[in-house]
Design a protein around this nucleic acid. Structure first.
Lengths: 105, 105
DNA sequence: GCATTGATTGTAACAAATCTACAATTAAAG
DNA sequence: CTTTAATTGTAGATTTGTTACAATCAATGC
């Protein structure tokens, strides 16, 4: 009955969007933030990635990348890392909310 | 003036969506199509990926993944690979069009 | 000055992911 | 039972990513 719920609406395929997770090299290319720095932010708990199995590589989704872009922007604006992290938290809460609503239909 | 054109609208960030390109392992996980088979379809010219430099690895974007899902579906429905490929071409033309319009604003 | 702290960067040695190129297998069709 | 389409297997090389340890650099406080 619904064997083609994709492809109809390329705009709204949140299901697929969620699954689009990329490696750290790609994230670095996309955001312009060096891999080393991304790992550092992660150490400090500001950014989060996940691993698909034991002893594998970091994966980042759409929202994590957004977050990295936000942090970068704030740093460029002169905030400290900690201050940027705090500011970004609020922002991400809102984005996540919108995202959630949209992907719930 | 527009130093935060992302984050405002997670729905519409086609800019980021375009850059979200994933490796073949991820594509395989997402679609359920074995890596080997994806490469084979590519050899036959049905699927396309790109490489970011000489001697690097295949990357797939959102639309390529959609395409793979479509081919898979048609094969499951009993079409030949070639027939599926043909059918998918038409479908992708339309999807690309919509996508283009949306990302143009 | 100079020691402290926050932020970043460098790199070696190892592990995971992917690549190509060759060949084998399987199923359907004539 | 041979042909063709489609898929799968795999070795050996290359690319990408990992951790852990240490070095650098700038700002701040004493």
């Amino acid at each position: 009955m619904n064997h083609d719920n994709h492809a109809d609406n390329p705009l709204m395929d949140f299901d697929l969007l969620r699954k689009l997770v990329v490696g750290i090299g790609e994230v670095s290319d996309i955001t312009g933030v060096p891999q080393r720095q991304i790992r550092y932010w992660e150490e400090k708990g500001i950014i989060q990635s996940y691993k698909e199995g034991e002893g594998t590589t970091r994966k980042y989704d759409y929202l994590s990348i957004k977050k990295i872009l936000l942090v970068k922007e704030l740093l460029d604006d002169g905030f400290t890392l900690d201050a940027a992290a705090k500011k970004v938290e609020e922002r991400m809460r809102m984005i996540n909310e919108v995202f959630q609503k949209l992907s719930d239909r």
